[in-house]
Design a protein around this nucleic acid. Sequence first.
DNA 1: GTATAACATTGATCGTGATCAAATAATCAC
DNA 2: GTGATTATTTGATCACGATCAATGTTATAC
Lengths: 189, 189
Amino acid sequence: MLAQLTTYIADRVRLTDTELQRVLSCFHLLKAKKNELVGRTGEPSRRMFFVNKGCLRVYYIKPDGREATRRFAFENSFSTSLTSFIDGSLLKEDTQAVEPSELLYMHREDFYALVDTIPAWGIFYRGFLEYAYLTNTKRLEDVITLNPRERYQLLLKENPEMVLRLPNKLVANYLNITQEALSRIKSGM
Amino acid sequence: MLAQLTTYIADRVRLTDTELQRVLSCFHLLKAKKNELVGRTGEPSRRMFFVNKGCLRVYYIKPDGREATRRFAFENSFSTSLTSFIDGSLLKEDTQAVEPSELLYMHREDFYALVDTIPAWGIFYRGFLEYAYLTNTKRLEDVITLNPRERYQLLLKENPEMVLRLPNKLVANYLNITQEALSRIKSGM
DNA sequence: GTATAACATTGATCGTGATCAAATAATCAC
DNA sequence: GTGATTATTTGATCACGATCAATGTTATAC
């Protein structure tokens, strides 16, 4: 159950056995049904998720009520609404399991307690921040520099799994276009 | 010369006098003329800037050669192309002084040497990462959830200085619209 | 296994913001 | 201060992607 998570951590930072056990003991299992929300806009941010199996989708709700997907998290990745997690403020986005998922989560207070008491976990957090910054900024770059067709082609090249695994509707939403537009792009028009 | 910077640091983290002197000694002065580039796409990332006076603009070059502004940094803020600074890779964006500017910069190697040897500077870096993540993600949110008029109104509300201080052309570019479109939005059409 | 709902595709039309163009207005260089 | 360059505004047209609508397809629930 904790095997993937243990590997993920060990690949990134050196913890003693004791520290590792302490870290792992802070994680809890959550099985989420398809389409279940594990984080809701307006709630305080409480949890950091590790995706053991399945897929999470994090999305904003626009003023007109529609959704705008910020990211997907597949197996072996951490995911949380960092902007709220950092300061414990209210969530500004939903987090949804788009497939039946097996999640390991840690409470926010536990997470930062570890950061403050285990130096190596502080390094882990720093690396997490760097990576989160990288991916989000890449996403911003793509949105402001590329048109829909270019965004799709880049996604297909850099992240084919997303296109193959997820329904068109969600891929389109991630690309910030309608599913009709994506359908036409795919058919080569 | 180092007064603003010293205050900025002291407001965020506790350093001993010795540590503070060591940190400050790593900064160098750079006076940049209006429109001068202090970072160019394709060069290795070498410097972290603190804006003492003036304003920096960081922008991508699109496939068609046009520019897409990611951010502006005014007085009393740090700025760098973090995605490249983190791993020392080649810059993917230009950094331009849009006003005659007075910059204090630190070399990348010095910066990370401080992170590794002064724990409080590690905390400073962590806070910097958190803030950089926050602002960039907010920017991504705005771009994917709001239309041009909404983006302008939000900018006017949250960051009026940018609208008042910068030429329309640059504000429009930051909003990811043409200057004609911004002109019409402003005139209330 | 069938009924129902959700998703995908295709076509026709629409609207927003881009583009092109021209006239002022403001800045800058010398 | 003057000329030249750059920025801004306004108008006319265009194009891309959104929207609306209809049909076909695939999942899902029971």
